[in-house]
Design a binder for these strands. Structure first.
Lengths: 157, 157
DNA sequence: CGTGAAAGATACTAAAC
DNA sequence: GTTTAGTATCTTTCACG
């Protein structure tokens, strides 16, 4: 499917603030409600919108510590990788998980309350996956975090 | 403020799916609409909910490449750090940014379309911030990504 | 806390241009 | 694409137990 600039603007709007009303949205992109609504429907149905969520305040909820965990493995067969991925998906503390190119094989971001909580998580992880080469890096401060994709918007009308 | 288990359940629900109706929510936590609504209002006003957003499909929008950029610096005064943080916030490609403990000082996740796009970003970053020690690690695959916080929910009624 | 009910706003659908 | 209009649905508020 092909998205024009108006579609992109709509996506940019809702990924920034999903509580915006249809009226306001239409106004912002210079359309009336009906075609605006149709576009939104089209975008949702086509899968450009994955889901609608509320972002919570991690600090207020005592989950302010991000730990980046680098994993190396000598296991490289597809079967092992699949089981590993499955196990990881089960851990709610693991909020991001990537297969990497380069020095190490996997990178995950783990969200916990504090250092002791991380230690408990770490033990669980090790025993569940039999990993050996694991490096943990603690984030002291989250300076920026956004779910907004850097959409390429044309500036011209 | 003190949150009970019902509050936590409500937060868990909306961070998973914000398009859920008040009716359904009330049903899920075993409340009727009115008290459920009052709790939601309380939670929003107290700042537990940061924002409501739509999560877009990065692959569909050709923004599927995550690059983790580690930065070392010898500049450690507060003034420099602030200017650096500001500059970073301006880049829409930088979706996450952390000050780290350990080997390197900062870690960022950069979201781009492909390798050439990353190269363009890289040059922009370097010239804007005069950084020297920068290491880039490419993610080959995003296996898990969630905005849901691992909330501690009691299992008991 | 619960019920129920009413008021207001908004989303949705459909029409005609 | 626009406008108008009507209905359905949901949120929000209130009165009362």
């Amino acid at each position: 499917m092909n998205l024009d600039n108006t579609d992109m603007q709509l996506l940019a709007l809702i990924q920034h603030d999903d509580s915006i009303s249809l009226d306001l949205m239409a106004q912002q992109v210079g359309l009336s409600k009906t075609p605006c609504w149709r576009r939104i429907q089209k975008l949702e149905k086509a899968g450009y919108v994955k889901r609608h969520v509320a972002l919570l305040d991690a600090d207020k909820l005592a989950l302010g510590v991000s730990v980046f965990v680098q994993v190396k493995t000598n296991q490289h067969d597809a079967n092992w990788a699949m089981k590993f991925a499955e196990a990881v998906t089960e851990f709610p503390e693991i909020v991001e998980f990537y297969r990497m190119a380069g020095d190490y094989d996997y990178l995950m971001r783990v969200l916990v309350k504090d250092i002791p909580a991380y230690d408990r998580f770490y033990k669980k992880l090790i025993s569940a996956t039999a990993l050996t080469d694991v490096t943990s890096n603690f984030a002291m401060e989250q300076i920026k975090y956004t779910t907004e994709l850097p959409l390429p918007l044309s500036k011209n009308k």
